[in-house]
């Protein structure tokens, strides 16, 4: 059974890795695409994706987590909260291309941010927000009521209860939701296509701060789309190499948050 579950993952990753093997090297990561994207590396799109994911998460995490805390811990059950909950569930099901058009209208044109990393990150943040709210709410709801009661009855305020009991006991679930959204944000092409990502842009190789918030950028997901469908004569291994780096980036973020998670757990004297 386990094999059945693991086999597709191993097959997919293994196949991509095998196809990408001839091109993989440190140079591939640290050089910009060259020759009309037919050779060279993926430095520019890789850095662009990192910027987009981190910035969008920096926007959506605090808003999403606080919204979930409000909905689960403070809000009374009335028509307003029911509307908000309904909106959250429905927004989670909106196709990403619709988010893209909303981002184009709201951030690029109306707010006047132009096509930029900031506008694209805001669009991604809007896209990930409902899922973050929903998953955080679920994690909070899983904390037994008895813990809250215990806390209230020694005179703790609602916020103290949340800070000392509810959040520490739901942080695993919250982080799991965030990880999923990292992968989601990194992989989406449509929302960034209209709002901040470009086909080609060369940046200073090896410079981590090569993009500014109002620059346009390349992104791995869009680069993968471009070189596999829009540019003729791309060497076979190039798209696979791009795919494996995209996968690796997401896996690295996941690994990082697992480390954070175990650290958090180890700090408690359970």
């Amino acid at each position: 059974m386990t094999l059945l579950l693991v086999a597709p993952l191993v097959l997919i990753v293994g196949y991509i890795f095998y196809q990408a093997l001839p091109i993989l090297s440190l140079d591939f990561i640290f050089t910009n695409p060259k020759d009309g994207m037919r050779s060279g590396g993926i430095w520019s799109p890789l850095l662009g994706t990192c910027y987009l994911v981190l910035l969008s998460l920096a926007i959506s995490t605090p808003i999403g987590v606080l919204a979930a805390v409000f909905l689960n811990e403070y809000a009374k059950d009335n028509w307003f909260t029911r509307m908000v909950n309904l909106a959250v569930v429905n927004l989670a099901g909106v196709p990403s291309i619709v988010h893209a058009l909303f981002g184009l209208g709201a951030f690029v044109l109306f707010a006047g941010l132009g096509k930029s990393i900031l506008a694209a990150s805001l669009t991604l943040a809007i896209m990930t927000l409902p899922v973050i709210i929903a998953s955080t709410k679920q994690a909070l709801a899983a904390v037994p009521m008895a813990f809250r009661e215990a806390c209230w009855n020694v005179g703790a305020t609602r916020w103290q209860t949340i800070r000392h009991v509810v959040l520490p006991n739901s942080i695993n679930g919250i982080l799991t939701g965030l990880i999923l959204e990292v992968a989601h944000a990194a992989g989406e092409t449509a929302p960034i296509m209209f709002t901040g990502a470009v086909f080609y842009k060369a940046i200073q190789e090896g410079d981590l701060f090569a993009y500014g918030p109002f620059d346009q950028c390349m992104a791995l997901s869009m680069h993968l789309f471009t070189i596999s469908t829009q540019v003729p004569g791309v060497p076979h291994a190039l798209p696979f190499g791009t795919a494996i780096v995209l996968l690796g980036t997401v896996l690295m973020v996941n690994a990082l948050s697992i480390i954070v998670r175990t650290r958090l757990r180890a700090r408690k004297k359970w």
Binding site: F147, E149, A150, C151, V154, N169, K268, K269, W270
Partner: peptide
């Protein structure tokens, strides 16, 4: 102050998922 003066014990024991020691000093720390 009211809840410090009037404490409550529940149907199902509900210690917090921390150590015995921390459970007892939890209120003071709060």
């Amino acid at each position: 102050e009211l809840r410090k003066t009037v404490g409550m014990v529940f149907q199902r024991p509900n210690p917090l998922p921390i150590s015995v020691y921390e459970n007892i000093v939890f209120g003071l720390r709060i």
